[in-house]
Design a protein around this nucleic acid. Structure first.
Lengths: 152, 152
DNA sequence: TATTGTTATACTCTATAACTATA
DNA sequence: TATAGTTATAGAGTATAACAATA
């Protein structure tokens, strides 16, 4: 196939119709970009966006139960089991038996987890800054503010 | 459990730490809200956000191949097979043998598909407007513009 | 050789229901 | 009776590799 003679169907621009003004579609596309970028930056450390969220919440709120972390992040508590298993096997967080309620665990970040998290956070910030180059000064704040307004 | 005496761990506000200023996290949360709203509005019609995207692209670009639609929407062509099967079984689109290339199909929306799409679009617009109540005048345009700038 | 549609496969994520031990 | 963690399970969604037909 030559460069100056490609079929119309291949060369033609796609018409996205109503998708071009649908927030749901644009949010999904943008989120895919961020997801891929995050993965490229952190997958060699074994951390996905979902695992990162759990790490942050456990770090900032030591002693929370699995169910409380799941609720905070909008996940189901059944899905937390494998996540906590994995983060515990990486020795980043630990389950401690709750003293008040023998049904539940209190989650804590380990000392190694805190060190690991510092390096991880550098990667995450770099990935974030990389993508924020497409925003003008002040726009990131506007964007975060708008995204925060959609109710859960 | 009484209302005025709940445990600190349950009542305490969660500290989201760095997540509060990470676009990737906020985009995911917002997208989940839109996804759930879309599903609530359209799932009884058997249409998910992903199927809707395919419908729009086929409607606006009659005659595209499956691979071209997949590329436009950022999906893998192998995933298109089940999607087109389903939309064809709903008699919304149809595969026609391509005249130029006997390997591929040209995709078209059926007359029934066009009628169906009009009703579907009303639902989608209502769902979009419902969520846009949380944005001030002019902000939706700003938001779409910013989301569009992140490169694919 | 390369590409289209297809199949098989697998992996992640997510959601539901049911079980146990505790409350 | 209700809840926490767990398990099993199933459904999306997504990605890879390979194949037959065709280019």
């Amino acid at each position: 196939m030559t460069d100056d003679k490609v079929s119309a169907a291949e060369n033609e621009q796609i018409n996205f119709g109503v998708l071009d003004c649908l927030l749901g579609y644009k949010l999904r596309r943008a989120q895919m970009v961020f997801f891929d970028s995050f993965s490229a930056a952190c997958s060699d450390l074994g951390i996905s966006p979902g695992l990162f969220g759990v790490l942050v919440v456990v770090k900032e709120n030591p002693g929370l139960t699995q169910t409380a972390v799941a609720k905070a992040l909008g996940n189901d508590r059944s899905a937390m089991v494998a996540v906590v298993d994995r983060l515990e096997s990486m020795e980043l967080i630990e389950r401690r038996p709750s003293k008040k309620d023998r049904r539940s665990y209190a989650l804590y970040m380990t000392p190694h987890g805190k060190t690991f998290f510092n390096g991880l956070l550098e990667r995450v910030r770099a990935h974030e800054d990389e993508l924020c180059q497409y925003l003008e000064s002040g726009e990131k704040k506007q964007l975060l503010d708008m995204l925060d307004r959609f109710p859960r």
